[in-house]
């Protein structure tokens, strides 16, 4: 793929590349019928892999395919290599015919399996992750009961925070922050975007987010949000 902008730094190029490949993971994941947790796991595996090793040595799309396959196993939503290959082929070559089941196909399947083994070895079998999803779900349910019902119904806080969380996987946020902190931050950001206020925030001894997570700070929340904004900036630069 060609560089989209000649002015950006090599680091920025890398981020863009990862952005594209993780979007590939998400879209292929949706086409394969994967639930949100396995998709999140696939993205986390992908980021962790490239966090460990040099980017140029491996084809990111092969790594992505293996990450999808491995995530299916980890999260008990088993996928067939064959389906993964077909979906990914279609994604990368829109409008093309399905791949012939020939030696090339088998070689591709073997490389997915080999790459899975490589990833397991590199990540030292640490492929179970705590994702922010369950925390976010819990926070949303608690907050909903606390909030004014009308102001809650008027603004799509749940949808927005869920979308923010999903999009966060375009970068390696999941590696740099704790799951609970990401969950708090996306919720905070969503509330801010829609100008929704949590009742009696001013008079409360503790901020609402301090109730959800004892060790989160305003600085962490701000950092997560600024990283999130950067993800969306990348998005506009790529397209």
């Amino acid at each position: 793929m060609n560089a989209t902008s000649s002015v950006s730094s090599p680091d920025e190029e890398k981020l863009k590349k990862h952005f594209k490949v993780t979007r590939f993971i998400m879209e292929a994941g949706v086409k394969l019928g994967m639930r949100s947790i396995p998709i999140a796991t696939a993205c986390t595996i992908y980021h962790k892999f490239f966090n460990e090793i040099c980017f140029d040595d491996y084809d990111p799309y092969l790594v992505a395919m293996s990450a999808i396959y491995l995530a299916g196993k980890v999260e008990e939503q088993h996928l067939r290599t064959r389906d993964i290959i077909n979906v990914c082929h279609r994604y990368l070559n829109p409008g093309s015919e399905p791949l012939e089941v020939d030696s090339k196909f088998w070689e591709l399947r073997d490389s997915i399996v080999q790459c899975e083994l490589l990833m397991l070895r590199l990540l030292n079998f640490r492929v179970s992750f705590q994702h922010p999803h369950k925390f976010l779900l819990h926070y949303l349910l608690s907050l909903k009961n606390w909030m004014n019902r009308h102001s809650w119904d008027r603004s799509p806080i749940a949808t927005a925070s869920w979308a923010l969380l999903r999009d966060s996987y375009h970068s390696d946020l999941c590696l740099r922050y704790e799951a609970q902190h990401i969950a708090v931050a996306v919720l905070y950001f969503a509330l801010q975007c829609y100008g929704v206020e949590v009742p009696s925030t001013d008079s409360a001894e503790n901020q609402w987010w301090q109730v959800f997570s004892v060790d989160v700070t305003k600085i962490i929340i701000n950092n997560v949000i600024s990283d999130l904004i950067h993800v969306y900036t990348l998005d506009t630069e790529i397209l």
Partner: peptide
């Protein structure tokens, strides 16, 4: 196929 097939 693009780079995927060749490299992988």
């Amino acid at each position: 196929m693009g780079e995927v097939l060749c490299i992988s």
